[in-house]
Amino acid sequence: MVAQMKIGILAVQGDFDAHAAVIARLGAEPVLVRVPADLAGVEGIILPGGESTTQLHFLKEEGLKDALEKFAARGGAFFGTCAGAILLAREVRNPAQESLGFADLVVARNAYGRQLSSHVRFGPCKLKAEPLEMVFIRAPIIEQQGSGVEVLAEAEGHPVLVRQGRVLVATFHPELTGDTTVHEYFLKLVRNGDRTAL
């Protein structure tokens, strides 16, 4: 039997369990990451939804930020959803806060408004022929993207799913739907790196 691919899921706060369930369903091994040592043997990392301010505390104070930077420098693959998108962006607004900067994006937090603006929609996505279900919860908006960023899905005139090399970013929550398309694509990205086609 082939050894299972290990996918780390940042588990300091947020909906990491929902991601872990999808990863397990797709036949890879989810590894909850709370300290740098948890990254051993991990081939790709998911930054889940949750509160980015809370998650940032743990990244900065417990050595995880350095560990993730090293992982990125080694060419590791990342997938951020919602708060994860905020952590991966180059610049964060509303309000400004620190971020990892692995994706050439400018992201505004809570840009649709408060919880009353949270919603579910179906929209076109380059990863599949049929419309993709997207769950937005107090979601951020990608206001600008660099030229190296490929837009995989848009909604209301803003990119909502983008890829830059080995970094995949969604402002919505594919982990809260029964559709595993986006996670499957991330596993492909982990396996094939920059060469991954659609």
Partner: peptide, 14 residues
Amino acid sequence: WRVKVGLAEMLKGG
């Protein structure tokens, strides 16, 4: 209902 429970999911581990 799903977006209501969705926000609760986001608060886990905190």
